[in-house]
Amino acid sequence: MASEKELQLYEFICETLTEAQIVFIRDDRVLFANCRKNGDKFPVSCVFAVNKTHEYLQCLSLFAVGNEYSCVNELSVIANAYNARAPRGRIDIDIFSNMVHYRNVACYKGREITKSFVSDFIENAVTELLKLDRLFSGYTKGEIDFETVLTSLGGEGAV
C-alpha cells in the first residue's frame, strides 16, 4: 500500500511528464509512468517510478543493444568511464545479452520532496538519456567509433 507521500510523488512525476509533453501510460497500481518513444521528439522509452521497497524515485531505460559493431568489452569500458564521472545516474550493461540500460535513482527517505525536485530529477534523466541515445545509436550503427564515444563521456582513451 502506497503512503500519501508516495502517491504525491507519483502525481509530481505524472504532472511533470504531462507539462513536458512526454507521452506516457500510468500504472497507478505500481506507481509507474511508462514513457513511450515518440518519434524524434522523444526517441527513447523509459519508466519513471516510485520504488516503495527502497524508498527511491527511479528512472529506468533500455536504450541500446550491443551488436557486431559494439562488443561487450567496449560497452563495459564505456560504462565504467561514464559511471566514474557522471554526477548522477549510471549506465548498466547486461554482459550476457549486451543490453545497455540507463538508471538513475534518488532517495526520498525522510525528505520533504518538492515538485521542483521531481522535475529536476526527470529533466536531468531525460537530458542524459537523449545524449546517450544519440551516442549509442551512432555507435551501434558503426557511425561513431569507440574512442569518440569514450571521449564524449569523459573517458581517458581506449584500453
Partner: peptide, 17 residues
C-alpha cells in the same frame, strides 16, 4: 582492466544504488 570493467558491470546490474 577490461575484465575489471566487465566485472564492475556484472555487479552493478544487480545493485540498486
Amino acid at each position: 582492466i577490461v575484465d575489471g570493467c566487465k566485472a564492475a558491470c556484472f555487479l552493478n546490474y544487480n545493485i540498486f544504488n
